[in-house]
Structures are given as structure tokens and as C-alpha cells.
């Protein structure tokens, strides 16, 4: 490990925090995205419409704004509701904001992926007497991933970089660690360049992994 005026281990800690934030947000974001996609396709009009408005809102607002509203808004709400002080910590607020935004974008990807499954297959499944839930579980869900993967991959790359925004709520991820190292060592360009290289490295590794997994998901299928 390069020493970086002694701040190497600190930056590494920042990288781990960034990855942890991104991984937890990815997990929750996929669940939110799936739920939102299903809600948007549901026949319950008000639900579909409401979720549609909410996801559009979250996709449109700058992530920074979403994070700040969640961090301060929910905290003030909690202070009003609970007598005891219940803290919304930075990690929770950061993950909540990032996964909500990720989920909103992912819901569109998932919706597209569900729609991409040939209708004939669903009709065939129904004519076998499968219930709508069985159709969803056996036919739609397993195949949807194949169509959704490229879109999700792009969202993951965006998510990694968006983690740098949550430093405003006091989380010590890579970007915040970079800024701290900068203020102590007074050599900003070294540290900002290193941060850029680390992010690029994460992106390159993710891209290669995604390519591999996409290839795997297409095994035995002729696409296009």
C-alpha cells in the first residue's frame, strides 16, 4: 500500500465505507425498485399513479437535496414524534436516500424488463392453469433479470459515484476522507487525483464483472 503521507489506511477505510454504502443501497434499492415496478404495473389505479409520481419526483430531484431533506426532515419529524431523542444517523439517512433514488431509477428498468418478456410465454403459462402469482414467480421474475441487467449495471456505476454526496451528512466515505487528508497535509492535488483513480478502478472492475455476468445470464439464449 502506498503510504500517502500516512493517510493510505484512512483512504482505504473511506473506500470500504463507500463500498459498504453502495452495496447496502444496491440491495435495498433493488427491493424498492422491484416493488415500485410491480406497483406501477398493477391494476390498482391510485397505487400505480402514486408510485409513478413518487419515483419521477425522486429521479428528478438532485440526490444532494434528497439526502438533506431526509436527514433533516426525518430527524425533525422524529424529534416531534418521540419524546426520547432517537437519532437518524448519517449512514441510515445516506442509505435511505441513495436506495430510494436507485430504486426509482431501477423501477423503470424493471418495468421495461417485465414488458420485454414475450406475451406468448405468459399466455402459455396461464393456459397451463398457473395462477398469476405462479406466473410471476416462475416465468416473469427469473427471465426479467436478463433484460434488466445492463440497465442495473449502469445504475450501479452511478450509485458508486453518488456515495460521494453523502459526506454532507457527516459520513466518512472516500471523498470525505480525501478532503480531511487534504486539509491536514495541504496537498490537495495528490489526494484528489488518488481519489479519482480509486473511483476509476472500482468502475473498471465493476464493468468487467458486469460484462461477465451478463454473458452468463445469456447462456443458451439467442438475443435480438
Amino acid at each position: 500500500m502506498i503510504d500517502l503521507q500516512g493517510f493510505g489506511p484512512q483512504l482505504l477505510e473511506g473506500v470500504l465505507m463507500t463500498l459498504r454504502l453502495a452495496a447496502v443501497s444496491l440491495f435495498l434499492g433493488i427491493i424498492i425498485g422491484l416493488a415500485a415496478a410491480i406497483a406501477k404495473m398493477s391494476s390498482i389505479r391510485w397505487l400505480a399513479r402514486g408510485v409513478d409520481i413518487l419515483t419521477n419526483l425522486l429521479r428528478g430531484l438532485p440526490e444532494l437535496l434528497t439526502i438533506l431533506i431526509l436527514y433533516y426532515g426525518v430527524q425533525n419529524l422524529f424529534n416531534a414524534i418521540f419524546e426520547d431523542f432517537v437519532e437518524v444517523d448519517g449512514f441510515t439517512a445516506g442509505v435511505a436516500a441513495l436506495s430510494l433514488v436507485f430504486g426509482s431509477y431501477a423501477s423503470e428498468t424493471f418495468r421495461g424488463a417485465f414488458l420485454a418478456i414475450p406475451i406468448g410465454q405468459i399466455e402459455a403459462a396461464k393456459s397451463f392453469g398457473m395462477s398469476p402469482f405462479t406466473v410471476f414467480r416462475r416465468i416473469q421474475l427469473p427471465q426479467m433479470w436478463r433484460y434488466a441487467l445492463p440497465g442495473l449495471g449502469n445504475l450501479w456505476l452511478v450509485l458508486i459515484k453518488d456515495t460521494s454526496l453523502v459526506s454532507v451528512v457527516g459520513l466518512q466515505e472516500l471523498m470525505r476522507k480525501t478532503q480531511i487528508a487534504t486539509s491536514v497535509t495541504k496537498s490537495p492535488f495528490t489526494f484528489y487525483s488518488v481519489a479519482a483513480l480509486i473511483f476509476i478502478a472500482i468502475t473498471v472492475v465493476s464493468t468487467l464483472f458486469l460484462r461477465w455476468i451478463e454473458k452468463k445470464s445469456r447462456r443458451g439464449v439467442r438475443m435480438g
Binding site: L157, K161, S164, M175, P188, F189, Y192, S193, A195, A196, L197, F199, I200, I202, T203, V204
Partner: peptide, 11 residues
């Protein structure tokens, strides 16, 4: 595309 815009603006 791989590095945060924040870093690009700073540099």
C-alpha cells in the same frame, strides 16, 4: 464516467 464529477471540477 468513472470518477465523480466533484473531483473533475476540483482538478
Amino acid at each position: 464516467r468513472g470518477s465523480p464529477l466533484l473531483v473533475q471540477v476540483f482538478l
